[in-house]
Structures are given as structure tokens and as C-alpha cells.
């Protein structure tokens, strides 16, 4: 009899402790979103189906989206997310796009009519210009998200893969 009472008490105490711990040490949803967001490439390209990297991070944290929807992050990005979330590494879902080298937008300036549509589309304010005046892309700030391409009425925006700018010796491994 004493044993049963002791065990019941022990179970009740442990249950109370665990219940308290669960509410006290509850995983901070915000910090998880921040950590996922830190892995995402911040191109803000919306290829994942969400309007930016942070909304996608929130969706992953809420288990509404998979970790295979970010083509700019590529296989490395999926691997990093899988590592963070303790999931299996899976290939990129081709439905959302292919992994490819970052290409920056470049406006063929003589052809630009100054409609400002690309300026409104750019998620990182990397295009400068005014109505009926030529626009140009600030290459340092362009993330290569391609969001400026569809709105351009005269198709004067090219995507150019930049040359490697790191002037450091690349070791040759034979």
C-alpha cells in the first residue's frame, strides 16, 4: 500500500515538475525564426511562395513549409536548415526553381523608358531613377532576385553573372 502511495506521489510530483518546465522553458518561436532567417540568403526573391525570407522562415518554423523551397540557398542552404532543425537532408524541390549562380540585374540604359515599375518591384531598393528618366541598378545592393524582370514593359533588364571579385590566390588542388 505504502509503495503505491509513494509511487503515485512521485508520479504526481514528476508530472507537475515536467508540466511546469514545459511552460517555463518553452522554445522561443521568435528565436527559431531568427535562426532560420539567418540561414536564408536574404535575396527576398519570393520563389518559395512567401513574400520574403522572413515570412518563409516563419512558415518553416510553423511547419507550414518545407526546407526545400529556396533555390538561391541551394543544396548548402537545405543542408544547413536540415542541420538546424534536425531533419533529413533532401534535394531542392524543382517546383520552386533550380539552383544557379547569382546573376545581377543590369538595365540597358538607352532602352529604359523610365516607367518606375522595376523600382517598385525591387525588394531591396537597389534601383534608382525617376518617372520618365533613366533607371539604373546599384550592383552592390542587387541580390539577383529577378523580381524586376516581369514588370519591365520594354524588357531592357539583363541578368549578368559577375566576375569573381576576390583578388586572392585560389589554391590549385591537383
Amino acid at each position: 500500500m505504502t509503495g503505491i502511495i509513494l509511487l503515485t506521489l512521485l508520479a504526481a510530483a514528476t508530472g507537475a515538475l515536467l508540466g511546469y518546465a514545459a511552460s517555463w522553458f518553452e522554445a522561443d518561436a521568435d528565436s527559431l525564426v531568427n535562426r532560420i532567417d539567418a540561414i536564408l540568403p536574404q535575396t527576398q526573391c519570393a520563389q518559395c511562395g512567401y513574400p520574403g525570407c522572413r515570412p518563409y522562415a516563419e512558415a518553416i518554423a510553423n511547419s507550414q513549409a518545407g526546407i526545400d523551397q529556396c533555390p538561391p540557398g541551394g543544396a548548402d542552404g537545405v543542408a544547413a536548415l536540415a542541420n538546424l532543425l534536425g531533419r533529413d537532408v533532401i534535394p531542392l524541390n524543382p517546383h520552386y526553381g533550380e539552383e544557379k549562380p547569382v546573376a545581377l540585374a543590369f538595365i540597358r540604359e538607352p532602352e529604359c523608358i523610365g516607367c518606375t515599375l522595376c523600382i517598385k518591384a525591387c525588394p531591396v531598393d537597389a534601383i534608382v531613377g525617376a518617372a520618365k528618366l533613366m533607371h539604373t541598378v546599384i550592383a552592390d545592393h542587387c541580390t539577383g532576385c529577378e523580381l524586376c524582370l516581369p514588370p519591365c514593359p520594354v524588357d531592357c533588364i539583363d541578368l549578368i553573372v559577375p566576375q569573381n571579385t576576390i583578388s586572392h590566390y585560389h589554391g590549385q588542388i591537383s
Partner: peptide, 18 residues
Amino acid sequence: HRSKLDADIAKQRFDKRA
């Protein structure tokens, strides 16, 4: 390291735009 810095700047610009 460089692309991480670039991503941070892009994030700041996106947030400021928002």
C-alpha cells in the same frame, strides 16, 4: 563571410523598405 555580410545588408534594406 562576404556573402553573409551581403545578406545582412540585403535584409536591412528589405526591412527598411517594408
